[in-house]
Design a protein around this nucleic acid. Structure first.
Lengths: 137, 137
DNA sequence: GTGTTTGCAAAGTGTTTGCAATTTA
DNA sequence: TAAATTGCAAACACTTTGCAAACAC
């Protein structure tokens, strides 16, 4: 099924990103990158490591999420002005947001098409275009 | 120039929305609705009333912003996972977000066109589509 | 060994809440 | 006067920070 990563070596992935493969980073990276596309908050990820019987402090989860984001292993998504979501899919794509359950979901590639974009105001440059399709459930 | 509201009567606006025109609500509504399209956070609005030498507590600013939103006088916009923005333009439109200055700006009507939208996942319904064009300045 | 990373607990944001005092109608 | 609204201060949720101990190389 998943032929992209016959045996995903999280340690090399971290090394290539210039991050020391510490016990904590390895644990988090495994959860994040060995299970397909994921959308997590710090609290969610922290709960997951705990469940896996590994001890990583919440502060380290926060730090690690930001380091991974800086290293382009994760992308930060803003949908809720109360918590931060991180997406393991760093390619260009958009999102569904389930407003009741606070769950974020990728919109399959190519299903959103933008046929017109505005000129950015003078002196500005477009960094990214984010589309969030909010869902009533 | 602005012929839409020869003399904008904030008091009636509030009454029509089913909100008692209290001193505080009137002060906030004047700031919000008598100056064209505005994008504010609670803190920004609170600072503005203070500057106008009117006393409105921050808690009341928060309450009022939510009441106005519930009454469809404002719309809440999520662009920053740290603060809430409220837009006095409640019609369908999209936004520029200046990432350096944390400023939100309307994209003029019709300048964003979405030519394809995904099917919502089974059991869900699309509530709204938000497009945020992030700017590097 | 040396510099990096971690965990803790404390501090920091932005926001909400409980409740007595005040205001509106 | 009855019901709605306000302001305060305390509580909250989420996130960041300072620093000593632990770890990676």
């Amino acid at each position: 099924m998943d032929t992209q990563r016959p045996y995903s070596n999280v340690i090399n992935q971290l090394r290539e990103a210039g991050l020391r493969p510490t016990r904590q980073r390895i644990a988090l990276a495994k959860i994040l990158f060995e299970g397909g596309n994921r959308h997590v908050t710090a609290e969610m990820l922290h709960a997951e490591v705990q469940n896996a019987k590994m001890r990583v402090s919440l502060a380290t989860v926060y730090n690690t999420l930001h380091q991974f984001t800086a290293a382009n292993l994760l992308r930060e998504i803003v949908v809720d002005s109360q918590r931060c979501y991180f997406d393991t899919n760093v390619s260009d794509h958009h999102h569904f947001f389930h407003e009741k359950s606070n769950l974020l979901e990728d919109i399959p590639e190519g299903q959103v098409e933008i046929s017109a974009l505005p000129q950015p105001p003078a002196g500005s440059e477009i960094t990214r275009v984010d589309v969030v399709v909010k869902l009533s459930d």
